[in-house]
Amino acid sequence: MNEVVRAVIIALGILIVMMTIAASLIWVERRALALWQDRYGPNRVGPFGLAQVLADMVKIFFKEDWIPKFADRKVFVVAPTIIIMTVLMSFAIIPYTREITLVDLNIGLLFFLGMSSLGVYSVVLGGWASNNKYSLLGTLRAAAQMVSYEVFMGLSLMGIVMITGSFSLVDIVEAQRKVWFFIPQIIGFFIFTVAGIAETHRLPFDLPEAESELISGFHSEYSGMKFGMFFVGEYLGITLISGMIVTLFFGGWLGPAFLPPVVWFLLKTFVFILFFVLLRASLPRPRYDQLMSYGWKFLLPLSLLNLIVTGAVLLFMK
């Protein structure tokens, strides 16, 4: 088969599957949250309320798409698309299986970190363009939070790079044939997960949105499909971070042969998605300064320590 056609098919496949997953996550999250909170959640539309996803989509597409008069129009419109684009771009480098890999970049990990940095622009521009004080406060928090936690996210992954000797995600998964990296890199796993939550600004790190304080923070002024894009962007972000955790620490597609590799990958990813939802159901939200000092005073030294120890062990084993 022609390489180009193959790549296009995989790209389309990934796009469709990921968008579907992100959309169905709306339902998954609402049902799972409800389960943990002793209530039903959406259970009326279709079997188990599954058609709620469709209903939500129809609703959000047909909602009045209102742009406030005081907003900076162009930036306001562009902002929500950025988050969708950067997250979707990151999906390109994830190896779902050995065969289903769109590109095996030799700087795959750096590409992922770069894309997640660009994602900050979405939040910052969106909040800034809204020209609303609550959005502004949300944006300030988001900018500080995401920029800081990127540092630890990057550092937490360097241990893996040292062990593997490669930035390619396929190589990283292959290197986990003997043992999944979450065992030697347990600290890296912990920091990456925390930073991942902060990057997707989910509870307990949802300070940029912080409903009880900032109403909706940076997307207070958004409605209709533009709001929907932030919304789906968040779910895509969860899927991406879960996928990355699985790829980097839990052996990606690797698993006993009784299930096909892609199923292993999806199953593991789903577990982490549920973990994200569970976090939301159980934890309160720290204060902004607490979040920052936790990052800089605890996570940063920890990730540096992790690097030093990993390096020392590697040198010793040589």
């Binding site: 949250l33 943990w36 002793d38 009880s212 159980s282 934890l283 309160p284």
Partner: peptide, 16 residues
């Protein structure tokens, strides 16, 4: 109160 500090679930339990 729990919800004010960002904990979403307790309100459902206390309302039970």
């Amino acid at each position: 109160f729990a919800q004010d500090v960002g904990q979403l679930s307790p309100v459902f339990y206390t309302f039970t």
